[in-house]
Design a protein around this nucleic acid. Structure first.
Lengths: 243, 243
DNA sequence: GGTTCGAACCAATTCGCTATTGGTTCAACA
DNA sequence: TGTTGAACCAATAGCGAATTGGTTCGAACC
């Protein structure tokens, strides 16, 4: 334990926890160590850890569930609970088909209704997506861009529907599929160009072009999805051959 | 086992089960005995019990869950519980805009994928809608027709999304608006003709025509909705004048 | 030939149990 | 007065056995 810092100080634990959250070096599900673990590794009392966590929880940086653990990020709302039942009855290809039918419509509406500030935000998000190096942050910014387009449509209910689709799409069950689909060979430049084409059309208030650009973009994503799943099938067949 | 009745007859089991349901002598949670139990107590094969239960399930008198049991009453749905939060943040015009963007897409898919049996069902529903005299049954059959089109799209997830929209649309909060919108002067013949145009296009496997027909149909509904709400506004303005 | 039956098997669910984990209380203590 | 450490409480996750609806298959029967 540090010597010049008062041990058991919750402020010290708070800083350590903040840096832990910033570093992003935690499990994929965002779960951080147990309170007892933290109290030993940080060399402070569990009470101090709890005080620090209470602050972080009040700030919305973490949320806790008795018997389960403490997790990074905002507390998940009730909507996501129903996602599970939706995920159960469908598959990624169906979801992609729905996106192909709905997101071009949102892009059209966005082209009609997007304001100057909206367009600025869209270009910023497209730039962030392009400049992100690792696949994780790329998907993060990509998701933000698509949702911003949905927001620009100016229809709260339509946005809610989009969020439902998005939740199903991002369900952890399909994490591996997405992880491999987005690392498909050399599609990144094409995808970034398509993003720009969509945003340009929205900025030009050209609904037809925006819808078509979005459709082409999703078709590209669908292609990589098909490629991945067919690869999976081939692997499965190969394994069957071996046995 | 009975002597004058053919054992293993599912009709016999069906009658026994009906009387069991009528008597109401089952657990508080509405759960009735397991299939294996029933097959022994009723002295019929489990297959016969299952046939009887299938009938009762189709009639909506019971619902079954694998690994859990068979329960009396209609199948509970969790979806409707959270519709309220969606309704709160939107309004009928937004919902209609979403329908205008999504249902034509469903009609297009239906035109591609609908089978012969599906088309027959569509014509039957269109006929029922046309022949219904009172506004209540008209809306009932109209809703069934629209949902059947969504089913014909052959995408379970898309159907789930459609159901979410439908739930919000049918929310009791907007009951009065819908009641007045559908009684708009003399639109019934036009709406029925539009229904037939949609179904004809689907039967002809013409996606473009199906989508356009659906769009025109929804535009008509939107018009009547606008008319109603504008009337409301006039009334509100008139009231404001008085105060 | 077609249907039914019994049996076995499959898949989803429930239940009981244990271990884990956040939440709480409390006496000791500085 | 406030903190600490420990014990205890309550809710949750994980696991395996038992249960239950869903399915398949061959034998028997009409």
């Amino acid at each position: 334990m540090p010597s010049d810092e008062p041990t058991g100080n919750s402020n010290y634990a708070l800083e350590r926890l903040r840096s832990l959250l910033r570093s992003g070096t935690l499990e994929a599900d965002g779960r951080l160590p147990t309170e007892r673990e933290l109290s030993t590794t940080l060399g402070v009392s569990r009470r101090a850890v709890r005080r620090a966590l209470e602050v972080l929880e009040a700030e919305g940086r973490v949320w806790r569930r008795q018997g389960s653990g403490t997790y990074a990020g905002p507390r998940p709302d009730m909507l996501s609970e129903h996602v599970g039942s939706l995920v159960a009855g469908t598959n990624p290809m169906e979801v992609m088909e729905v996106r192909l039918r709905i997101e071009p419509q949102l892009a059209q509406l966005a082209a009609v209704r997007a304001g100057t500030k909206d367009v600025e935000r869209l270009y910023e998000l497209a730039g962030r997506t392009e400049q992100s190096t690792d696949a994780d942050s790329h998907e993060l910014w990509d998701g933000a861009l698509h949702r911003q387009i949905a927001r620009c449509a100016g229809n709260q209910f339509f946005l809610a529907i989009f969020d439902v689709i998005n939740r199903v799409r991002q369900d952890s069950t399909w994490q591996t599929i997405r992880q491999r689909a987005r690392t498909a060979a050399g599609t990144a430049p094409l995808i970034n160009a398509q993003h720009l084409a969509i945003v340009d059309a929205i900025a030009a208030h050209d609904p037809v072009r925006a819808g078509e650009a979005m459709r082409r973009h999703l078709l590209t994503l669908q292609e990589s999805l098909v490629r991945i799943t067919s690869l999976d099938r081939q692997e499965a067949d190969a394994e069957k051959e071996l046995t």
